[in-house]
Amino acid sequence: MYTQGLDSKADQGAQPSPRLVTDNDIRFQERIDAEEKIEPRDWMPDGYRRTLVRQIAQHAHSEIVGMLPEGNWITRAPSLRRKVALLAKVQDEGGHGLYLYSAAETLGVSRDELVEQLLAGKAKYSSIFNYPTLTWADIGAIGWLVDGAAIMNQVPLCRCSYGPYARAMIRVCREESFHQRQGYELMLALANGTAEQKRMAQDALNRWWWPSLMMFGPSDDQSAHSAQNMAWKIKRFSNDELRQRFVDATVPQAEFLGLTIPDPDLRLNAETGHYEFGAIDWSEFNEILKGNGPCNRERLEARRKAWDEGAWVREAATAHAAKRAQRHLKNVG
């Protein structure tokens, strides 16, 4: 899955503060320009570190929160083959969360700190997961569109200047592209199915199309940190470039499914070869960022409930480990 909101102006976490450029800064930028990977022990500007922590943490949180809307359909998957595929997919997402948290930890924050920020409502995760999964077709639409959009964003991250993040993303991307194909195949079965199944597929496309476009974040002219992040090679392409790529790749896929993209302004520009699309309703996006999406409350409540109800289990594990260590000491002493 994917994290967005990185470039929102409302987000103050990594605003570069004006300061003097030091020799370290210059050497750092030379390494970046030479496409060298930055590793955890290397010197890096505070802003670079903060930006990465924020982005990787948002990404990790997105994976974890993203388990909820899809997990919502595991017990109702309509065939055992689909059930197994969905279980495996959601498990992959938990795994992505794990190694992204680990990548963030190389920058000097602990997973517990990051999780606390999420549960306190102080950290962001991808807004896409604040939409509900209402029918089975939503599982297909998430795989096809949401994972499809995620891949557009994430493939360039495999070349991110920060080594641990880039390496984590290589594995994430491999799995995401598998999920995307699975999601599309699920949609295909619905599109080729009964009239009711086709209706289900169209309804899911109607609801997920615009939120998927919003996953790429605000338009370039509204984006706060793009220039610095591009210079640091944390980001390689602008939000609008990636969004356009996604639209160009996805429209023919929808046509192949025989489904209609819910945008009356969508048309192919024969000259540019790109699809032009209608205006995005950013007010909806901004409301969700503010916490007013259909499922914002439910998602965080579910995470908090799991965390709170699991407290006695984690305490038991800690207590047991301490007892073991003590017994071991006694035995060797």
Binding site: L68, Q91, G94, A306, V313
Partner: peptide, 21 residues
Amino acid sequence: SEWCGHAPELEEDIALTNIAL
């Protein structure tokens, strides 16, 4: 599989989902 996304810690979320699988 009913635990998926709701386990006491992330490692267990993954483990229980894996066993369900």
